[in-house]
Computed example of a mutant assay.
Amino acid sequence: MRFYTIATLAAAPLALAGTLAFAQANEPRAPDGRAYLAQPLVTDLYVADPSAHVFNGRIYVYPSHDVDAGIPDDDLGNQYAMHDYRVLSMDRPGGPVTVHPVAIDVKQIPWASKQTWAPDAAYKNGTYYLYMPARDKAGVFRIGVATSTSPTGPFKAEPTPISGSFSIDPAVFSDSDGQSYMYFGGIWGGQLQRWATGRFDATAGDTDLRQDDKPALAPKVARMSADMKQFAEPSRDVQIVDEAGNPILGGDHERRFFEASWLFKRGGKYYFTYSTGDTHFLNYAIGDSPYGPFRYTGHIMSPVQGWTTHHSIIQFSDRWWLFYHDTQLSNKNHLRSAKMTEMFFNADGTIRQLDPFKK
């Protein structure tokens, strides 16, 4: 048995306070002095656009793998020169993170030339599917699929991209009735503005359509075929509307879609979530069907450190988790770090807005 004197007991709170103060003083901080809400999942490589899923009770994260190719920043995203995919996994939130070997490299994707950007994954009937945007041999972004019997790969790519696919940021949602849907698209470097007429137009501009008083460019959705390798129908617009049911306009940069579609279902409602890009918010809109329309509801997260963020949302053990990225480790827009934090809902189903920095 250990005995303490009164003097020792009196000093204990002071010692604890000193320890906490030391920890807070040495906590990693942003250049402006703010403390981060969460820390990177891994620190020995740069990963971004984390697409998280729960397979067989384990969390798997499918990010893009950032590399430094020495390319200056531009609006087309040429500095994002990713060329392969690495899968992360953990048995629980906050648990040790395993970085798995290369799942697939762009050299193993027959139709692709470069820039393997933000992926997504799905599982059906013993097969894992990895959905990959990349530039084809003509420099046009398409979306392809690769398969594996393991959630971490290696994955084998189909010889051609998905017919009718274009642009970037695939996100596949599987509903309770067994139907699956792909949401995709991104403006600026994601080329969505070049498909406004239904056909690729290289002269359509490098950013958006610059039609601020007209409906914003819309992300796309298509139901997947039974084998999860093709669209079962032509893609259609995902309508994001305001409180009155009118389309969000192109000039409404704090609410309009930019990239990073993600859909989840909660309480019988469909939550379409996305990034606003140049205003740096993560937003959400709620609908009654996987096709929408989705009523704009609010921000999920305030701007992170870095140019923008790209996210995913999962439920694990009755708690909800947001995965996102920032530039904490590099302070460079093209070298990002994936993070995760718990998110919360209000009684009416709305999401409590998160701040990526501690108050």
Rank of each mutant, 00 (worst) to 15 (best):
R58E: 03
N78I: 00
D66K: 07
I59L: 07
Y60K: 11
M82Y: 09
D75K: 10
M82H: 04
I71A: 07
H83C: 01
M82G: 06
D73W: 12
D73H: 11
A69M: 00
D74Q: 13
G57R: 09
V61K: 13
Y62Q: 14
A69G: 09
Y80Q: 07
A69T: 03
D75E: 15
Q79S: 12
Y62W: 09
S64H: 05
H65D: 08
R58M: 13
P63S: 04
V61S: 12
Y85M: 04
S64K: 00
P63R: 06
L76P: 10
D84W: 07
D74S: 11
M82I: 02
L76T: 15
D73G: 02
D68E: 15
N78H: 10
A81W: 00
D74F: 07
Y80E: 02
D68I: 04
Y60S: 13
Y62V: 02
H83G: 04
Y85H: 07
M82N: 00
I71M: 11
I71D: 01
Y60M: 10
G57I: 13
Y85T: 07
S64E: 12
D68K: 02
G77L: 04
Q79N: 13
V61Y: 10
A69S: 07
D68N: 14
Y85D: 03
M82A: 02
P72F: 06
D74R: 06
S64M: 05
I71Q: 00
M82V: 01
S64Y: 05
N56L: 13
R58Y: 00
N56D: 14
V61H: 00
P63F: 01
R58L: 08
L76N: 15
P63Y: 06
Y62A: 09
V67H: 00
I71K: 01
D73F: 15
A69W: 01
G70C: 14
Y60I: 06
D75I: 14
N78M: 06
I59Y: 00
G77I: 08
D66Q: 10
L76D: 15
P72G: 08
Y62S: 13
P63T: 06
R58S: 04
M82D: 09
Y60H: 10
D73S: 14
Q79R: 10
D84A: 10
A69L: 03
D74V: 03
H65Y: 13
V61L: 03
G57Y: 05
I59G: 12
Y60R: 02
V61D: 00
V61T: 05
H83R: 06
V61P: 13
Y62P: 11
R58H: 04
H65G: 08
D68S: 09
H65V: 08
V61E: 05
